[in-house]
Structures are given as C-alpha cells and as structure tokens.
Simulated assay, not measured.
Amino acid sequence: MRLFLLVLFLLLGLAQRLTVPEEVARSQVIRKALPAVVRIQGTTPTPSQDQVVGTGFFIGPSRIVTNYHVIQDLASITVRLANGRTLPAERFAVDPGIDLALLTLRGGQAPGVLAFSKTPTRELPLGMGVVLVGFPYGQGPLASYGILAGIGPLEVPTPDPSVGAEVGEYLYTDAPLTVGNSGSPLLNLQGEVIGVVSDVVGGPSGIGGIGLAVPAELVAQSVQDLERFGIPQRGWLGASLISLDELPPVLLRAVGLTTAQGAMVDQVEPGSPAARAGLKGAGRDAQGRLVALGDVILAVNGQAVKDKAAVVRLIARYRPGDRVRLTLWREGRRLEVTLTLIARTRR
C-alpha cells in the first residue's frame, strides 16, 4: 500500500511538473466560471419558437449581466443554469449606451457568481491571457482562450449606432467567439471579469475577425448606477448631434468652417445641460430641411472631436456635477462654453 501511494505521489508530481502554470490557471478560471454562466433564450412578440439568443453571467444571487442587444426585442426571457435548470428572468434595468442589461432570476439562485476586476482599463497589459465562457451557437457552456489584443475606440460602423454609442474604448481579443457569445464574461487568469463580450468585427473571432468587449470598469460603474437609480449616470449633453461630414460643404463654408471635423448641435432638449449652457440648435423650415447651422462642437475639454460619436464618448466619461468645457464654432467665430452635467431624467 505504501509503495502504491509513493508511486501515485510521484506520478502526480510528474504531472504537475509537466503542466504549464498558465494551463493550470486557465483550467481553474474555467472551472470557477462555468457555474456562473447562463444561456439566455426568449421569444419575440410574434414568436415561432423559443430561440437561443446569447449568454449572461451572475454577479449576485439573482442578478445577471448580459448585453442589451441580446434581450432588446424579447417579450419573455428564460435562462438555463449550469445545472440544467431553466428558469424565468425579467429585465431589471438597461443601459443601451454601453449595450448592457441587468436581469433578475425568478425561482432560484445562482450556482456561482463572478466579480469584476478593479484594475483600471488602461493598466491592463496587452498580450495578457484571457478566457471567455459562453454559448456559441447555443452550445455549451464552452470556453475559449486568447490574448488581450488591444484597447481603443471602435472605428467601424455598427449595425445599430444607438447601442453602445457611449463606449469610449473597447477591449479587443483574438479569443474565438461567435453568435451566441454576446454577454459572455471576458476573464483574466485570476478569474475576474475584465470585460463583457459585445460583438465581433470582421467575422467570427479567430476566423478573420476580432472580438470586442465592454471594459469591466465601465460596466461596474453602470451596474452601480442601475442598482441605485435604475438609469445610467454618465455624462449627457441633452442635444442631438450631426457629424459635420454628413452636412453639405456649402453650408460649412457659409459660416467660415474649413474643416469637416466636428459635430453640429441639431436639437436641444429643454432643461438639459446643453440648454442651460445656452447651446443653439439648427434652424429648419416647415418641411424639416436644414436652413441654418446650430453650434458646432470642435473640442471637449480641449480634445478635438472627429464626429458626433466622439462627442458622445467624451461626454460619457464624466459624471453628474462635473463641469465640461466645449469649444464651439458659432456664427463665424470660435468660443468656449462651460456646462455642468446633471443626472439623466428617468424615462
């Protein structure tokens, strides 16, 4: 018996020596994440049958994080837990600006939960190993592995520009992911969530594409707001914008603008920070045609802006009570206006 135990001990030791430490860490992360990840499915208002639509994960006993676009058009939502049980869930709060939704599980509790990393986004080292766990094509839960390939803004258009418009920068990864992975947790090798998978650019990741994840730093802030207020509390102008490159050049030249870099204020919402700061919207005739330019935003706190998306992303970095300086072009001259951000109104 002693000889058997000795041989077993030696074999286990040999196995450990032959296992790369990163493989051990990766395996432990996957094992920890599996109980916390759920398959989200639901029906549309005119359903033909239940359909698998994405992934989510528990951050509390009954609270699930997923993408807003996953549940956006669903009339009913159910989730399948790691133990195979299928239970109903309902929307708790949503944040389309960063493509985030919180769900509440009904009739059960989480078999496992995941925590957000507290490491600031800009301190995440490029090339670090990352793991994601989800339901590609509805199968799984399945895990994949890759690296953090980059951090930065999204430069290509998205199918719905209103969803995720306030994400200033994404995490990019080459970890394979595809349809059904939306809402998957992107994890570091300590098992912490560093991002929430939202999309793939250029095709399935690892097959001519690259995966995108909303940074945990931004998600955690939004979760805190949604839990407390029911709505996000990021910076908000309260004005609709039009990118200058969408406007006729003749209108720009008429007010002395020689650049197409910037965003025009089209309409100003009453009572908004834009209205309180005196921003001027565009003039339109009875048919809604543009006849006079509104204020043109050239920079936010000294940082030049390319288009309306850049303005929204920069403003979204701030919180209610913050003061933000806008560089404007109005009636042929440059001026600066300072506005104070306020909490968004509940809709």
Rank of each mutant, 00 (worst) to 15 (best):
Q267P: 00
Q267A: 15
Q267I: 12
V268N: 01
V268K: 04
V268G: 03
V268W: 05
V268Q: 09
V268M: 06
E269R: 14
E269A: 12
P270C: 13
G271Y: 09
G271V: 00
G271W: 11
G271C: 04
S272F: 07
S272R: 10
P273K: 00
P273R: 00
P273F: 00
P273I: 00
A274L: 10
A274Y: 05
A274V: 01
A274R: 05
A274P: 01
A275S: 13
A275W: 06
A275N: 14
R276A: 15
R276M: 14
R276K: 15
R276H: 12
A277Y: 03
A277Q: 08
G278N: 10
G278F: 10
L279T: 01
L279F: 00
L279E: 02
K280M: 15
K280D: 08
K280Y: 11
G281N: 09
G281E: 11
A282I: 01
A282Q: 10
A282H: 10
G283R: 03
G283K: 06
G283A: 11
R284H: 14
D285L: 04
D285N: 14
D285G: 04
D285S: 01
A286W: 11
A286R: 14
A286F: 10
Q287L: 14
Q287G: 08
G288W: 03
G288E: 01
G288I: 03
R289M: 11
R289P: 05
L290M: 10
L290H: 03
V291R: 13
A292T: 13
A292N: 11
L293E: 05
L293M: 09
L293S: 06
G294D: 01
D295C: 07
D295N: 13
V296D: 05
I297K: 04
I297N: 03
I297G: 10
I297F: 08
I297H: 07
L298S: 01
A299Q: 00
A299P: 07
V300T: 07
V300K: 01
V300P: 06
N301I: 04
N301T: 02
G302F: 06
G302H: 09
G302S: 13
Q303F: 11
A304M: 13
A304I: 03
V305E: 04
V305S: 01
V305P: 00
K306E: 15
K306N: 14
D307L: 01
D307F: 04
D307P: 06
D307G: 02
K308Y: 05
A309T: 11
A309N: 09
A309S: 12
A309K: 14
V311A: 02
V311G: 01
V311P: 05
V312M: 10
V312D: 09
V312F: 07
R313P: 02
R313C: 06
R313I: 02
R313K: 14
R313G: 05
R313Q: 15
L314V: 05
L314I: 03
I315E: 02
I315Y: 03
I315F: 06
I315K: 04
A316S: 14
R317W: 04
Y318A: 12
Y318H: 15
R319M: 08
R319F: 04
R319T: 09
P320K: 06
P320W: 00
P320L: 07
P320A: 03
G321C: 12
